[in-house]
Design a protein around this nucleic acid. Sequence first.
DNA 1: CGCCTCATGGCAATCGGTTGCGATATGGAA
DNA 2: TTCCATATCGCAACCGATTGCCATGAGGCG
Lengths: 340, 340
Amino acid sequence: MSEQLSRGGANGNRKPSATIYDIARELELSPSTVSRALNKPGRIAAKTERRIRDAAAKLGYRGNPMARSLPTGRTRMLGLVVSDVTNPVFFRLVRGAEKACSELGYTLVLAESQESGELEYGTLDRLLPAVDGVVLAAARLEDDQIHQIAASTDVVLINRRVGELSAIVPDIDDGVAQAIDHLATLGHTSIAYLAGPAISWMSRERGERVFEHAVARGMIFVEIGPTSPDLVGGQSALRRVHASGMSAVLAYNDLMAIGLLRACRAEGIDVPGDLSIMGFDDIFGADLTTPALTTVRSPLDRAGDAAVRSLVATLDGIEPAAADPLPTEIVVRESTAAPH
Amino acid sequence: MSEQLSRGGANGNRKPSATIYDIARELELSPSTVSRALNKPGRIAAKTERRIRDAAAKLGYRGNPMARSLPTGRTRMLGLVVSDVTNPVFFRLVRGAEKACSELGYTLVLAESQESGELEYGTLDRLLPAVDGVVLAAARLEDDQIHQIAASTDVVLINRRVGELSAIVPDIDDGVAQAIDHLATLGHTSIAYLAGPAISWMSRERGERVFEHAVARGMIFVEIGPTSPDLVGGQSALRRVHASGMSAVLAYNDLMAIGLLRACRAEGIDVPGDLSIMGFDDIFGADLTTPALTTVRSPLDRAGDAAVRSLVATLDGIEPAAADPLPTEIVVRESTAAPH
DNA sequence: CGCCTCATGGCAATCGGTTGCGATATGGAA
DNA sequence: TTCCATATCGCAACCGATTGCCATGAGGCG
């Protein structure tokens, strides 16, 4: 009548899953043999391996991930740190990373790093020791915080360069060139760049590229901001944008562009008649607005995929293959037109 | 000149983090004392505990999660399974779950269960043994698959009821009542419900509620579908909707409603003039469309939060507090008006 | 026929904690 | 002063794997 000790919480009537010891006993073998048969194909006689695999299947054996990672130090888990889970920019990114992880036999752990202070004693503190590496897509983190993270685990950055850390950065230049070309062709001679947060590497990068291409085209260029990279950021920038007298605006991201769009509508400013607006990323919802947003599409899903693969390669001690460029391109919709 | 063995991947020049053994040696104590001092406050003499905590801080001790979970069987990780990471319905849900986990000292692992076949030998297979419990927000899973999962770990469902499994389901009735009232007040006498996938419990539930309230109001009611719960699903349903002659449509979710909206626009059907359209959930983007979508808002963030808290309570052996109702309410925007 | 090699499988240490139980002070009561 | 209860800490087993090294036996070769 001895009651089975149920470890941890409710649902006590759950049979603890089989271990390699169960298999070993069943077959009168040593646990080490079972371990090898299951992980190092060929190390054990083919016949024995067969028997072991069959027994494992029969007993419903699932290796205990914790037990495995204790001696090896590898958890086969990867972290993905984003600054804001509800930001639609990350959706395709998460999807790409998730798929790659799944294909490579890894598990993806998603974390949010809203305030930078959270780095200490927060989610990241719990995350870092549990993963083999992290993909950082958190624009809000300071450079030295990133170095700090990189000191304790392998890191791959997305949309950002910090020191020599490996990074996946889509080739902005293509897209920006196309965007400026698009606007110039429409007849615009002046353009404003609506910057995101000052800390954002990507915001600065995009601003820089827009600047370069604009002046190369002989266009007037101004930069407005910095602002928060969301709807309200875009919304609140309208007065400054309007005051600048530019006929076209390129916002740091789609969220800001959409915010600006809405503010224009509220103020009775015609888009694209009075003002052409473009964004970056082509997030979900960019084609839902009226007018639908013209934007520079970023291959975020591919970036997520590439980041994970690069990370896993480094973990395996392989020099990560030089990632192919990840080109960007513009998606022309309705928010851009000839100025009048 | 003995080279330090770097376990696992690159970045070999990383100092392995301190263990309780390091602390014990430093203080000439036993590891077990260190362990207790750190986890069972009061179990050890206050003075000793102080010394241990100080030493731990000094050495930068971070407990090894794998090592801890091996004897205890608990990983302090929770899984969140959704059917589609890129579906904006889940964003607020993820956010809510993430925050709750963080507050409770748990780590959230996000997983996608697109095809049901993936249940075997897929992401879930790797996830399940690694977490203490899962929150299931995956409408695509079959009932018996859910039971199968529940057999091996603790489970909390969101937006769905299966057997006696604990579930967080917002109170649809409020919202639907308000919706029907809204439409009736506008003068509508007929209404169509655009159903999602047949397998979706929530789709059936919403349809049922709409049906009840519509007939209670003496309205004509038809159900159209089932369809895929996304933009194309809504888009492709336009002809059937139109053919039905109803003056108002309530779609299973906002994605479908928006798809329908777009199709209407493409076909020159005036919304809300010719047709009033409503959705469910109030996802990101629902207020971006033209006309902006009137919808029944679901408190998804609170649902995520509640699910996690309920799950953790069960894990702690506490009877989860009866969750407060999670009411729904309509958000009136521009896609509904009096029929003509 | 003898020796060497290689394939095969077992032993035992190890990863970093947790925890039941026992040993040793320590202080208070009698 | 003696005895006992209690507070404090250590011993050692255990969680479920991995892995270096060794023992055994079989087969190949001269």
